[in-house]
Amino acid sequence: MSNWKNAHRSFYYEYADEPEDLVLPAAETALLVIDIQNTYVEVQDDPREAKRWEPFRKRMNETVIPNTRNLIRQCRDRGVEVIFARIACLKQDGRDRSLSQKKPGFNYLLMPKDRQDSQVVPELTPDADDIVITKTTDSALTGTNLRMILHNMGIRHVIAAGIFTDQCVSSTVRSLADESFNVVVVDDCCAAATDQLHINELETINMIYCHVVQLEDISGFMDAE
């Protein structure tokens, strides 16, 4: 098992006591898979951009997607609710999007909800009874009914996986923590544009907004109840 209790420590928590063992009761836990959608694994038309993003696609295809598929299976086997969040606008012209998704540059996201590039990647296709949250913001809680859904189902603990670590994952994790959910972020089921951005963000959110762990740790937490 990984040494999650002492990994990814920022300046704030360098000398803090080790956290207690994590226990994730199935009936009170949900897995939230964030924004692992077709558009993010497509190769860009611009050769320069395609080359810049090649390490990210490699991590997605070789690590994040296979690990998340494994994580989903483990959760289903134990009766843990699996929920998906995806960026998708309700209007074809995207005027329902938040300002952060209308600004020019990388964060400009015009993905109508029924278009193929906005769908969850085929390897992780949600089951018929899975909840899929459509969001037009970074945080999966802001502007959606996810908070109410979790409350109605008696969920207290959320396992988070997805992309981008420093954007939608971080924003969602912070929102969940502010709403007093216990959050566990699975390092090797997440990615940012670069490994450095990914690592920096994990250090920032670890031990205050969540606990950062590895996929190999999760089964022990779920079996500990």
Rank of each mutant, 00 (worst) to 15 (best):
N3R: 12
N3A: 15
W4Y: 11
K5R: 09
N6C: 06
A7E: 15
H8G: 00
H8L: 11
Y12L: 15
Y12R: 15
Y12N: 13
E14D: 13
A16N: 10
P19V: 07
V23S: 12
V23K: 15
P25Q: 09
E28D: 00
T29G: 08
A30M: 07
L31V: 15
L32M: 14
V33M: 08
I34V: 12
I34W: 02
I36R: 00
I36W: 13
Q37N: 04
T39M: 03
T39L: 01
Y40D: 12
V41T: 15
E42C: 02
E42A: 04
D46P: 12
P47W: 00
E49H: 10
A50I: 02
R52L: 07
W53S: 04
E54H: 04
K58Y: 00
T63M: 14
T63N: 04
V64E: 08
V64I: 09
I65E: 02
P66W: 01
N67D: 10
T68W: 02
T68N: 04
N70K: 15
Q74A: 05
C75Q: 10
R76D: 07
D77V: 15
R78L: 09
V80K: 01
V80C: 08
E81V: 03
V82T: 14
I87G: 06
L90E: 10
D93I: 11
G94E: 03
R95A: 10
D96G: 12
R97N: 14
L99E: 15
S100L: 12
P104Q: 05
G105H: 10
N107A: 08
Y108M: 03
L110G: 09
M111I: 07
K113W: 13
K113D: 09
D114H: 08
S118A: 11
V120D: 05
V120S: 12
V121W: 09
E123A: 12
T125D: 14
D127Y: 15
I131Q: 14
I131H: 05
V132T: 13
I133D: 10
I133Y: 01
K135C: 06
K135G: 03
A140D: 09
A140G: 13
A140L: 08
L141C: 04
G143P: 13
G143I: 01
R147M: 06
R147V: 11
I149N: 08
N152R: 14
M153N: 14
I155V: 14
R156W: 00
H157P: 04
V158T: 01
G162P: 13
I163Y: 12
I163W: 09
F164Y: 14
T165G: 08
C168H: 01
C168I: 11
V169L: 15
T172C: 09
V173T: 14
V173F: 05
R174F: 01
R174V: 10
A177V: 04
E179L: 07
S180D: 15
F181K: 00
N182T: 14
V186N: 00
D187F: 05
D188G: 05
C190R: 00
A193V: 04
D195W: 05
N200W: 06
N200A: 11
L202N: 07
N206V: 11
C210L: 03
V212I: 08
V212D: 11
G220D: 13
M222P: 05
A224I: 11
